[in-house]
Simulated assay, not measured.
Amino acid sequence: MEHLPSWIRRHLTALRAVAVLTVLLGLVYPLLTTGVAQALFSDKANGSMTGHGSALVGQSFTGKDGAPVRKYFQSRPSAGDHDPTATGASNLGPEDVIDTPARKSLLTQVCARSLAVGELEGVSGARPYCTPDGIGAVLKVFPGRAVSVNQACPAVPFVTSYEGLEVECARPGEDHAAGRTVPVRGNVTAVQVPADAVTAGGSGLDPHISVTYADLQAPRVARERGLALGRVRALIGEHTTGRALGFIGEPAVDVLELNLALDRG
């Protein structure tokens, strides 16, 4: 080895380092971490499978027509339709308030979801900045005119006037980009549909909902299953996890495990 040229010695040293690190990081470390995970967290390490899916991955509880199955608690909305291969957020932010021919704005999506959840649960789905029919309440204001930009003609605008201007419906194909964007809050004072019922999470696969959203659904589920409301709420409590480490996040309800518990009676 000492008689070899220096450049060969350097390459041999590098190859030995690669071999040692490959064994340590590519074999020993994965086996060690897998062994510890299996010993301490076997259920979670294997995907928390329940026989009906993973308790760690959200899923929909809808019929073939896409409508919610009324005897089940419903999950949080998903930007990827609860498809693990399409996980991800919509990347739409709070300033996304104007519909386009290609897609509905985030505001209109939230308004439509809130209206649908309100109808399903028998409560008001009204929200600030939403029209009564579940569309983003947004005006485009120009010199001398105002347009309800998310309500295409012949729809009747959600307000008749704005700052002395008569509000028009949006003419299809008209470019409204030059107008001033004015979201209209309306007079909604109490929102009955919680935020996680109308917004998708970052992954699109959230397995949990808030306790507030679960409580909102409890009367419907109890009625559809012929169960006492107290029994359904007790099951919600049994499947509610607390804050991580006692202070991170909020208590949450695992929808799949709760629905399985209901099916087991």
Rank of each mutant, 00 (worst) to 15 (best):
P251G: 05
V191P: 00
R103Q: 14
V28C: 06
F247Q: 03
V147E: 10
D65M: 07
R171G: 09
R10W: 05
T34M: 14
G164S: 10
D133A: 13
D133V: 09
P194V: 00
D65C: 05
G201V: 01
T108Q: 15
E168F: 10
G58V: 01
G88C: 07
L12N: 02
K104H: 14
A178T: 03
P77I: 00
L115V: 03
R10F: 07
S124F: 00
G136L: 09
V191E: 07
G134R: 14
R223D: 06
Q38I: 00
M1E: 08
A228Y: 00
P128Q: 13
S114D: 07
A17Y: 09
N91H: 13
S114R: 13
Q38G: 07
D65K: 05
D96M: 09
Q38D: 11
R220L: 10
A195S: 14
Y129P: 02
H11P: 01
Q38P: 05
G80L: 04
K71D: 04
E121V: 02
L40S: 13
L4S: 11
V69W: 00
S42D: 13
R243K: 15
D263S: 04
V18H: 08
G63L: 08
A19K: 12
Q217L: 05
Y213R: 14
D254M: 05
P68D: 03
V193S: 09
V20G: 13
G186D: 01
Q192D: 09
S203D: 08
V57A: 06
F41W: 15
A178I: 03
R16H: 10
E224Y: 06
F73G: 01
G134M: 11
A89R: 12
R220V: 02
K140G: 00
A55P: 06
T199L: 14
P94I: 14
V20F: 15
R223Y: 06
R180N: 08
R171M: 12
A195H: 12
L24G: 02
E168W: 07
P132M: 04
E163K: 15
S148T: 05
A244P: 03
V193C: 06
A55K: 06
A218S: 03
V232L: 05
G88N: 06
T131C: 01
S161M: 04
L235D: 01
L229E: 09
P5M: 13
P154A: 14
A234M: 10
E119Y: 10
V191D: 01
P94V: 14
A197K: 12
F73V: 02
R76Q: 09
V255R: 13
H11A: 09
M49A: 13
S210V: 08
Y29E: 15
R171I: 01
E257Q: 14
P101N: 15
V28P: 01
G237A: 10
E168K: 15
R16W: 07
F158P: 01
T22W: 09
L227N: 05
Y29T: 10
Q109K: 15
V18P: 01
S75N: 12
P207A: 11
A252G: 04
F158C: 06
H3T: 08
P194L: 10
S6Q: 10
P94N: 15
N259W: 12
G51I: 00
R233Q: 14
